[in-house]
């Protein structure tokens, strides 16, 4: 029992389960899942589907934070990738046009990620400043691509990426699951994950011991760019339109929050992919809870803040020890 309690995924998982169970009080059929129009339909499915872009962004953020960095530009990269894809799809709504759009958008996202990585690892800028540049400039770029308008696309193949269902299952969730599995394999079945952690723990010592810190950091930012690019495709495909202002707005903060809830240290040197996924699900579950239980719009922010504070506190070993000590044994 104490083994389960000590597992670092215990508290985030417990918080997620408590939050979901709490919904039962207000919405008795919260857990019901049915098949409607050949698609799974239910609140839990919504949570999974809507958290897919956040999971991808948070996944990249996890690795960046593990190296001791941070990437504030993910939301803007999403907007740029989504805008470019929609710009291409709007004239070529067929399958080939959509494939071209995806390749172009993800390539552009990769370039943006490489740019971040270049600033951090080669130029040596502080990550928060380096990525702040693209956070601001990227919004502008997205606005430029969309010409300040909302690009609406009418393309069933493109819509499929964000709102489609494959064998009754949301396609976006499948994409996210594949990327997560791939990343987990790559970092945990090879030495890559450990190298990332060692660079985050002490970049100098890692370099002296023969690890290509610079190349590794560069690669991590590039990966985050690609993940954000795919998330941008999902987010814009979900509503079949690209809104340069709104796509991925403030998602960097949610992603950082997901990473922190998942138990990854903001100081770098340690990361947990499973924890991040749970963290992202938790954030989306919180949003969906707010909408289904009918918390008034004016109080949603406060409600969220209180829940997040509680979750962070119960996760903190130091806090738990203090509370346990004051409760007489």
């Amino acid at each position: 029992m104490t083994g389960v309690l000590k597992h670092r995924l215990f508290w985030p998982s417990a918080a997620l389960i408590v939050l979901l169970l709490g919904n039962l009080i207000f919405t008795p059929h919260f857990f019901s899942i049915e098949i409607r129009n050949g698609q799974l339909y239910g609140s839990l499915i919504d949570i999974l589907r809507l958290s897919a872009p956040l999971i991808l962004v948070a996944l990249g953020m996890t690795l960046v934070i593990a190296t001791g960095g941070i990437d504030l530009s993910v939301g803007s990269v999403m907007a740029v990738a989504g805008a470019l894809a929609c710009l291409i799809v709007v004239d070529n709504p067929g399958l080939s046009g959509v494939l071209l759009a995806c390749v172009a958008a993800v390539t552009l996202a990769l370039v943006l990620g490489l740019w971040n990585g270049f600033l951090v690892s080669v130029v040596g800028l502080q990550p928060i400043i380096a990525t702040l540049i693209l956070m601001v400039a990227g919004r502008g770029l997205a606005q430029l691509i969309t010409e300040g308008q909302i690009i609406t696309v009418n393309s069933p193949p493109y819509r499929f990426i964000g709102a489609g269902y494959l064998l009754t299952f949301p396609f976006a969730v499948i994409i996210a699951a594949v990327v997560v599995a791939f990343t987990a394999l790559l970092t945990r079945r090879t030495a890559l994950g450990m190298l990332v952690e060692s660079v985050g723990g002490n970049p100098r010592a890692s370099r002296l011991s023969g690890i290509h810190s610079r190349r590794l950091i560069w690669g991590v930012y590039a990966f985050t760019g690609v993940a954000a690019g795919i998330a941008g495709l999902m987010a814009t495909a979900n509503v079949s339109s690209a809104d340069g202002n709104a796509v991925g707005s403030l998602i960097e903060l949610n992603a950082i929050l997901a990473v922190v809830i998942g138990g990854t240290s903001l100081a770098g040197g340690r990361f947990s992919i499973a924890g991040t996924v749970i963290g992202a699900l938790l954030i989306q579950a919180l949003d969906t809870t707010i909408y289904t239980t009918g918390v008034p719009a004016q109080t949603t922010q406060l409600f969220k803040a209180v829940v997040v504070i509680v979750i962070c506190l119960i996760q903190s070993p130091a806090f738990r020890r203090k509370v346990l000590r004051t409760v007489p044994a």
Binding site: T27, H29, D46, A235, A246, D287, T288, T292, P296, A297
Partner: peptide, 23 residues
């Protein structure tokens, strides 16, 4: 019976409406 902000955007309008429909 339900009122919530959708922040004037399509994505939030969709997300909130999905939850409204379930609840």
């Amino acid at each position: 019976i339900a009122s919530q902000t959708g922040k004037f955007t399509r994505a939030d309008g969709k997300e909130v409406m999905e939850a409204f429909l379930k609840a």
